[in-house]
Design a binder for these strands. Structure first.
Length: 416
RNA sequence: GGGGGAGUGUCCCGAGCGGCAAAGGGGGCGGACUGUAAAUCCGCUGGCGCAGCCUUCGUAGGUUCGAGUCCUACCUCCCCCA
């Protein structure tokens, strides 16, 4: 493996987030000599980023930690196109309003991981709609489009995979690569940005930008990709059937976020500590050596550290404490998610199945009924045996009713 | 423009002679075993205050006692020819 001299590349390497580099020696040298400005683009396809973007966010964080300048590029423009990389289906075309609203909701997450400002290594955030929306078709084709060979584009993985699988690929999406390449050039011109990072699926797009820059701006730009992070059981990180693991606290509470990390597979603990926390290497080596049940201590540290980065230290400690009381002491913990019902409804009595549905513990009341039949639903830690069981004011204990689904999902029902 | 093929349970893949809430996987959830892990075994995986009722197979009509299944039109996608 290459011995890097620059702090940034060395850090990425020890942290396990380095996959490919375009021109290792030249980039390594450039990083040693100067403060480098680097960017990663994020699409605004949803109201929050999820854990799948975390490696990229951490890459920017590490860029900043090693003295360089990160640019967060919000894909306000490119989201209107839709990146075909790694997708089988044609992207839905999102409206401009939705994209803008998504963008606003995503901003806060970055402020947690990066420090923004006017200083030399402070992060900045830009929206590629600022320049992409202004483009005129014919001039763009003549100035930029001429440098792209369709023959070559057809061989790019993002395109080829679609074609090979007989999956639809619209001309709109086909252009994504060109626009992302143009982004890189534009960022170079505006901010002197010379580095683009991204997931391994972005390699083609990144290289396209580097090629374009050489042709139209006579510039030498660099690209770094990180590996696709999978869990040791082989699934893609951060995509559960229950939904993506959101970084935005409104979509996933810090407590649930903490739980996500707490439930990491044994085999992933060391890798995830390196990728998703700032803990020093010797500490990680100590933690990942723990055996059997002791490894749980490492998972708790992973959970707290990862949550602290995303939601702040206080929220992480609180989540930790809530989990400790719930799982280790088996007592009622105030910090559990809660749900409010009018006490008048409770007074009249409400079916437990309906209540579990209202509280969001299950998808539907039918689902709740099934869980009851399967013995998975508990009221105040006692299994509910009758599908038609009612919850009333009499079930209040310490002013709340604790509903649980399985060992891990709890919610406190609070009368108002 | 011409010809051929496809769209199935709102997670995915995928069977489906006119009686279908619809086979089988994967994934997920729950139970047992554990360590809030993995592996394994078992159950569940449309909705409803649920012995009943209501909605699902690209969309809209039609045939029929009865349609995912047959007919017509339309939409979307794929392949071949021009």
């Amino acid at each position: 493996m290459t011995e890097f001299r620059s702090d940034f590349l060395r850090l990425l390497q020890t942290r396990g987030q380095l996959h490919q580099v375009t021109d290792e020696a030249a980039l390594d040298a450039a990083l040693l000599e100067n403060r480098i400005t680097g960017y990663i683009g994020f699409d605004c396809t949803g109201p929050s980023l999820h854990v799948g973007s975390l490696v990229q966010i951490m890459t920017l964080r590490r860029l900043q930690q090693t003295g360089h300048k990160p640019i967060v590029v919000m894909g306000g423009g490119t989201t209107k196109i839709g990146d075909p990389s790694g997708k089988d289906e044609m992207r839905q075309v999102l409206s401009a309003e939705v994209i803008e609203s998504n963008k606003q909701k995503i901003l806060g997450t970055f402020a947690r991981f990066l420090s923004f400002g006017d200083g030399p290594s402070d992060a900045i955030m830009v929206d590629n709609a600022d320049w992409l929306d202004q483009l005129s078709y014919i001039p763009f084709l003549r100035d930029i489009g001429r440098h792209f060979s369709v023959n070559r584009m057809l061989t790019m993985d993002s395109v080829k995979l679609r074609l090979d699988r007989d999956a639809p690929l619209s001309f709109l999406e086909f252009n994504y690569m060109i626009l992302q390449a143009y982004d890189f050039v534009e960022l170079y011109r505006r901010f002197g940005c010379r580095l683009q990072c991204g997931g391994s699926d972005q390699w083609g797009n990144i290289v396209a930008g580097i090629d374009l820059a050489r042709r139209v701006a006579d510039a030498e730009l660099f690209g770094v990709t990180s590996p696709l992070i999978t869990t040791s059981s082989g699934t893609k990180m951060g995509k559960t059937a229950a939904g993506a693991v959101w970084l935005n606290p409104e979509l996933r509470s810090p407590y649930d976020y903490w739980q996500f990390w707490r439930n990491t597979d044994d085999g992933d603990v060391g890798r995830f500590l390196r990728l998703f926390t700032d803990l020093p290497e010797p500490e990680i080596q100590r933690l990942e050596k723990l055996q059997g049940a002791e490894l749980n201590d490492a998972k708790k540290i992973l959970a707290t550290e990862a949550t602290a980065l995303c939601h702040g230290r206080a929220a992480a400690e609180e989540a930790f404490e809530t989990a400790r009381r719930t799982f280790e002491e088996g007592v009622l913990a105030e910090g559990l998610p809660s749900f409010e019902v009018e006490s008048s409804r409770l007074k009249a009595g409400i079916p437990v199945a309906t209540l579990a549905h209202l509280a969001g513990l299950v998808r539907s009341s039918s689902d709740a009924r099934r869980s009851i039949q399967g013995g998975g639903l508990r009221l105040n830690d006692v299994a509910v045996s009758d599908v038609r069981a009612m919850a009333t004011l009499g079930d209040l204990k310490d002013g709340v009713i604790k509903l649980s689904l399985g060992k891990k999902n709890h919610i406190l029902i609070k009368p108002i």
